[in-house]
């Protein structure tokens, strides 16, 4: 059961990473990257590292996403 859950999370992680680089819309890519960070946070919580998971949720999924969003707002949204 636990092994299956691990495999599910890892598969989701790799799927998110591939979706990030395949998305042409930078806004969408940023949101998927945020989801990627959340999945990573779940994996770390599952592995007995709650401190790292909390930091990743706050910094990786929160602040990094906000910084990317601000940059997209001041530059362009579409990738050519």
């Amino acid at each position: 059961m636990s092994q299956a859950f691990d495999l599910l999370l890892v598969g989701l992680l790799i799927a998110c990473a591939i979706a990030v680089i395949r998305t042409k819309d930078l806004l969408g890519a940023t949101i998927i990257f945020s989801a990627y960070s959340l999945v990573m946070c779940l994996i770390w919580l599952h592995r007995g590292a709650p401190d790292v998971a909390m930091t990743e949720a706050a910094v990786g999924a929160g602040v990094t996403t906000v910084l990317f969003l601000v940059t997209i707002g001041r530059t362009v949204r579409r990738e050519r």
Binding site: L26, A29, F33, G48, A49, V52, F68
Partner: peptide
């Protein structure tokens, strides 16, 4: 080609290294 996309890729690389080092301590 897009610089923002490049930095998202760089962040994915960073996270993968973090995941590896955390996995060493499990």
């Amino acid at each position: 080609n897009n610089l923002i996309k490049k930095f998202i890729g760089l962040n994915i690389m960073e996270t993968s290294v973090f995941a590896f080092i955390v996995a060493l301590g499990v």
